[in-house]
């Protein structure tokens, strides 16, 4: 098992290209997905959840990390002093 993981780790370029291919496949798949009983406007837009995923992910990292750095983050011995 460790060998397999090491192999994949060494060939991380291939894994990366495989991942990008998967992303493209997923967008194409959305084009063919059957849409019924849409709950709101986003359900009718092809690739809406792609944009949603990337945007929310980036926003979450920036906002949470930002809040942490300017306000919430304290040294590990903060409560001991």
């Amino acid at each position: 098992m460790a060998k397999l993981l090491s192999f994949l780790y060494d060939k991380s370029n291939i894994v990366k290209w495989f991942f990008f291919a998967l992303l493209i496949f997923i967008i194409v798949f959305d084009y063919f997905a059957e849409r019924h009983a849409a709950h709101f406007f986003g359900d009718n837009i092809i690739g809406f959840w792609t944009i949603f995923g990337v945007f929310i992910c980036l926003a979450m990292i920036i906002i949470c990390k930002g809040l942490s750095h300017v306000w919430l983050m304290k040294g590990e011995d903060y409560y001991d002093n």
């Binding site: 997923i26 959305d30 997905a33 059957e34 959840w49 949603f52 990337v54 990292i61």
Partner: peptide, 17 residues
């Protein structure tokens, strides 16, 4: 198929993020 597509998009593109 729509739920599959929705989940895969959200997850894969979170991975991309």
């Amino acid at each position: 198929s729509y739920h599959l597509s929705e989940s895969m998009q959200i997850l894969a593109f979170t991975g991309f993020g």
